[in-house]
Design a protein around this nucleic acid. Structure first.
Lengths: 106, 106
DNA sequence: CCTTTTCATCGTAAATCGACGATGAACGAT
DNA sequence: ATCGTTCATCGTCGATTTACGATGAAAAGG
C-alpha cells in the first residue's frame, strides 16, 4: 500500500468521533446516518456526522449503498485487516544489527 | 485503549512523512534526527523533522533517549502491536444479525 | 574560552480541518 | 401535487496543522 494512501486511512481514524462511528458500523450492519448519529455520546449536527461518514468512505474503510431514503453504511473488513497488517509490519522491519548506529559514526 | 488515545496514535500516523520516519526508525535502531532527515525522499528542514519526531514520541509510538549530541529514536513495538490489534478488533465486533437494520423500522 | 555538532523550541504564515446552519435533492406516502 | 423523511452539499468561521527560518541549549574538542 502506497504511503499516501496509508496516511489517508490513518487520517480517517484520527478523530474520536470517526472511531466511534466505525465501531458502531462494525457492530450494526446496514445502519444509516441517523441511526449512527443517535448513538454518539457527543451530540453532533446531522451535517457533521454526514461529513465524518464521507471521510470514512473516501478512505475506503466503509462502504455506502443508497437505499432510499436511507444510506446504508457497512464496514470494509478487508481494508481494516490490511491496515492492521500494515501497522504490524512496522514491528518486523529491522535490518541486521550492524547497519544501525549503535556506535554512531560522527 | 481509550478512544481519544487511539485517535491520537492514528493522528500521529496520518502524515506520509511520519510514516516514512517510522519505517526508517523501525529498520534502523538508534538513529538520530539528522540520520533520519537524510533518508527522507522529500527534503525537509531539520526543525520540521524534529517536530514530526516529537509527534511520534508524544503519541507513544517511538521513544527518545538523549545521548549527547544525539537523540536516539527507537520503535515502541508494544504500542504498534497494540495499535494493530485495535484495528483488527473492529472487524470482529458485529452483534447478532437481528440487531442490525436489515429491514429498517421506519 | 571558543567552536562545532546535534537537536529542540519559538514565532509565524499558509493550508487544512471540524463544526454549524441553511439549503436542496430524492423518493415514498398521503 | 404536496408533504415528510433521510441525507448530502455548500459557505463560513474558528481552531489546528505543517512548514519554515531564526535562535538557543548542551556537551565534546580544540
Amino acid at each position: 500500500m502506497p504511503t499516501d494512501a496509508l496516511a489517508t486511512r490513518f487520517a480517517a481514524l484520527s478523530h474520536p468521533v470517526r472511531i466511534e462511528l466505525l465501531r458502531h458500523i462494525a457492530a450494526h450492519k446496514n445502519c444509516g446516518c441517523k441511526d449512527v448519529m443517535a448513538k454518539l455520546d457527543t451530540r453532533l449536527a446531522q451535517s457533521t456526522v454526514s461529513q465524518h461518514l464521507k471521510v470514512l468512505v473516501e478512505a475506503g474503510l466503509i462502504t455506502c449503498t443508497i437505499e432510499h431514503p436511507h444510506s446504508r453504511y457497512n464496514l470494509n473488513e478487508a481494508a481494516l485487516v490490511g491496515l492492521s497488517a500494515s501497522v504490524n509490519d512496522l514491528t518486523e522491519a529491522c535490518c541486521p544489527a550492524r547497519c544501525c548506529p549503535q556506535n554512531p559514526k560522527d
